[in-house]
Design a binder for these strands. Structure first.
Lengths: 140, 140
DNA sequence: CGAGAAGGTACGTGGTACAAACTAATTAGT
DNA sequence: ACTAATTAGTTTGTACCACGTACCTTCTCG
């Protein structure tokens, strides 16, 4: 396939972005998955199971993930009023602050990569990227 | 920043690609990092330290990684002739086969995402992506 | 009410990553 | 040339991440 370059470019770009993400997360002593956890919790107060779906993880993995985040005071568990089996996970003030700062640093980093791109280039890249992304792609 | 969309699109795209990679690797009972290991070894016969640089890992992490891959017969260690401290890592036939097949499946998957893109779109995306990638970005 | 389904947790296993301590081989300094 | 410092790799200990399994509690449905 002459499309080797295309596939390669996307792969390298994905590593570039993920490495930036991991590096920034690490600066705050967070792993990539913990960062994603906080990212999800910024806009939702899901059940453990919801989290599993969002992050593509088994429920037992979520237990541990939330355990560790809770131990660090980034997240809290609340029993659901309507179903006593269910646990709702929320972000704390500390967690929220971390999430916001991480997001800002990430945006800044991406911008720095894109320093050589014009406004039009960025728009074009944004549109092309969005056309590749199916409806249910996981977010940060 | 009105560039929120830009950053978001790149982040989502990176997750899309990485998830595809991880899923395909998992199909062959490989982790993402093992896949990258095989990818590097396809074109090089590096020392442990070289590998650490390529993959951005500590030498102790490389030891374990190569250990596990060697146990599965995907990789071999060879002592260097010129420096008896050094170990050269090579891919085996089995490893090579796995790497090639994985790469093919990955390319196919990416193509399927890009099904809606014209030839021109792909070229444009490739060029834009390459302009974001510094010369020393890690490869698959 | 009783059987089974659903939500979470606990535990065991294995991969991943790092730092620190260690061995062996090479290179530098005098 | 001989010691001192450096370099390559491994080992060990710790922590995180992910999964499957077993288990407990709570719901739901017949």
């Amino acid at each position: 396939m002459a499309d080797e370059n295309f596939v390669d470019a996307l792969a390298q770009l994905s590593f570039l972005v993920q490495n930036a993400l991991a590096e920034i997360a690490g600066r705050h002593d967070l792993s990539l998955i913990q960062t994603r956890l906080l990212g999800v919790l910024r806009d939702h107060q899901p059940t453990m199971q919801d989290l599993g779906r969002h992050l593509g993880l088994d429920k037992s993995s979520i237990s541990g993930l939330v355990d560790r985040a809770e131990r660090r005071g980034l997240v809290t568990r609340t029993p659901s009023a309507s179903d006593r089996r269910v646990v709702l996970v929320s972000i704390t003030e500390d967690g929220l602050r971390l999430a916001r700062q991480g997001a800002a640093e990430f945006a800044e980093r991406i911008e720095s990569f894109a320093a050589g791109l014009s406004e039009d280039d960025r728009r074009a890249l944004t549109v092309l990227a969005q056309r590749l992304i199916p409806r249910t792609a996981p977010s940060a």
